[in-house]
Design a protein around this nucleic acid. Sequence first.
DNA 1: CATGAATGAGCCTTCATTCAT
DNA 2: CATGAATGAAGGCTCATTCAT
Lengths: 222, 222, 222, 222
Amino acid sequence: MPPQPPEATAQDATRKHLLETAGEVFAEVGFRAATVREICLRAEANIAAVNYHFGDKERLYTAVLQDTCRVALETYPPNLGLAAKATPEQRLSAFVRSFLLRIFSEGPAARHGKLMAREMIEPTGALDDLVRENVQPMAAMLKSIVRSLVGPGASEETLRLCAMSVVSQVLFYHHCRPVVRRLYPDLKFGSVELEQLAEHITQFSLAAIKQLGKARKKRGGK
Amino acid sequence: MPPQPPEATAQDATRKHLLETAGEVFAEVGFRAATVREICLRAEANIAAVNYHFGDKERLYTAVLQDTCRVALETYPPNLGLAAKATPEQRLSAFVRSFLLRIFSEGPAARHGKLMAREMIEPTGALDDLVRENVQPMAAMLKSIVRSLVGPGASEETLRLCAMSVVSQVLFYHHCRPVVRRLYPDLKFGSVELEQLAEHITQFSLAAIKQLGKARKKRGGK
Amino acid sequence: MPPQPPEATAQDATRKHLLETAGEVFAEVGFRAATVREICLRAEANIAAVNYHFGDKERLYTAVLQDTCRVALETYPPNLGLAAKATPEQRLSAFVRSFLLRIFSEGPAARHGKLMAREMIEPTGALDDLVRENVQPMAAMLKSIVRSLVGPGASEETLRLCAMSVVSQVLFYHHCRPVVRRLYPDLKFGSVELEQLAEHITQFSLAAIKQLGKARKKRGGK
Amino acid sequence: MPPQPPEATAQDATRKHLLETAGEVFAEVGFRAATVREICLRAEANIAAVNYHFGDKERLYTAVLQDTCRVALETYPPNLGLAAKATPEQRLSAFVRSFLLRIFSEGPAARHGKLMAREMIEPTGALDDLVRENVQPMAAMLKSIVRSLVGPGASEETLRLCAMSVVSQVLFYHHCRPVVRRLYPDLKFGSVELEQLAEHITQFSLAAIKQLGKARKKRGGK
DNA sequence: CATGAATGAGCCTTCATTCAT
DNA sequence: CATGAATGAAGGCTCATTCAT
């Protein structure tokens, strides 16, 4: 008998189910279009269950956002279990791959990507916390990787710009999927294709970053 | 009897005004949150004007999308009036700059960027036409630029991947602005900063593309 | 054909009907217990009619309060068409009688009394205006009557106290009707009984006020 | 085995606390607006405690009404500890003063006044008992005072009318406080002002009653 | 033709009450 | 026994759309 989590009450079960179902619905149609009725119906809960467990629709949404974020990061950790003494190149590759896998996964973890994309269009109060607690550390990690690659002495601005150039390439395929799909109908995003994509983004970025590093040294600074 | 264009002005004026106002409202709050009432109120038109002129809210939206796209491309053409014999580097730079200016502009042209960002989240039927008529040519133009840079013989896939890497860096700042603003509160997007940003993206991309070109030649193909 | 009130449109008819019906319902069960559904149902109007014509339930209530007040004062004017040179005694009698008739009437004018009674328990924002525009003038009128009766030189405080003693006797029978009915089940409030009641209140008050006037003179002022 | 009253304290304590808290809430916002949740929350009791101890919200209200009435009469008894051989004038004065103090007091006793005022607007079943057991005796007491003042031989109707004229003046300031406050914003109801008010009502009523007594004798009857 | 009064479906939320534990 | 999670009816309000004028 496994060490049962303490107090796995009926309440928690309903709450959890609600959280999961709401995640689905919010990811599918967004906060506004999602209706409490639909969520409760799918979760086989009473229409008043949302208000009872979360106060109101908005707080349910906040809880969903935080929960999906946690799940996504647990499922695809940014370093992908890399050895401690990995090279910067390996670390960049892992970062890109885990990021891609995270937002293109098909499971519950994928919902976070959809929710975040919607959050970019209409930010809610929940975004502040999310950026501070989750995005910030990721950005710092990536910047440290870039610093290792571009060499010491690079300005904060350079690090920031390069980090964003890396991130942008990953996010693009997720965010602009509707356009990409229409431009290249044959393009798929299976695991093979994702690996190829990760390889391209990594190589493209490595080439650029290293080149910038060389150019900086030649100019003797900055 | 002349083809009475000057006659129908009263109607056309209302229609045009409605189109413009709807563009504002849709860009501000999105399709769902926008209300026909609000649009008609701002346009000083009757509440039934939308249904009268455009059939329903959705067809108004489609008309708005097409209109804003036209305006945006007219205001910031992709080549920025470049000389015919411009170098590939100049053409890439112009492409990046015009793209950035287009989506970060503060005017009617900027609305298109916002609407497209929303379209990425919940594509409507209008997106098909838009991609075919506007995005496709832009993509082709960028790919030809990349081809000039990477050298002859590069695969279609390589061209496509590189083109997307370029585009993604531009779009990122627009699409993820809510996160960027929270990560770097001091970052501004005035004309000076946009120029610097364009410079970075251009240099980053040039370095990567050329490097990939060299690597390919060394490997002797693909 | 009578001089038709200008613009007696269909809109006004619905609005007026709604106002009347809402008056009934609010008087019967109060603001909170009254439901927009019930009001619209009784008025044979759409469920959204209240919001359309009055904005929301609260503003409908305010409109009802103002309207019933107007009707009540038009139906039973405070001076009851008294001659200009009426004696103070006659004016007091008319004031008391018209007040009693107003709050005990059975028609639409009676609703105002019920609404005001509820307003005493839970005042709304509408009360401020009502007191300023309707109660204030009535109070001034009564005070001038009392001044004529008590003789010159009486303090403002005395006038106020006496005026309130008069008003209180009238309102009591309306406000405490539930208790009065239980104490004296045989008591009726038909027109005959109201006349007797008016006579008592008038005589009781006259006796008191004149006596106070005499006492004051003996003491040589105040 | 003794009749275990000390046993059941835990339950009784909750019940009593609930009664007290409900009194507060009902007096503040009325029966309808009061929520069982709020009452249980303030009483630090379970949400189901009301139904458990009192059956439902309505029966809780009835219990509250009876309890507050008891407390109010215990705190401000109608004769204010008057000597047995007090004059009718003194008894009237005591009656008026105790009545005023009761309804204007700032404590648990005051709640009864507020509840009764609401009961006047929407009587509940609890009113019958209350009138029979509490109001009736008070009315009888006041009528006997009036009889002493107006002289023997006065009709029941006269006694009743005069008694009500007295009571009405007291209740008016409590019941119409919202209007009074708006008419005379500077008016306060501290202990000093209440004494002055009691004095006015007493003198006003005494003057009227005695005058009516004289008039009756002159006319020789009734 | 162009208007704006009117519609009714549907949304979020509240609340007294119940019932298994 | 006492609890609190769960219920479901009902309320106010919004909004795209319609239709008689």
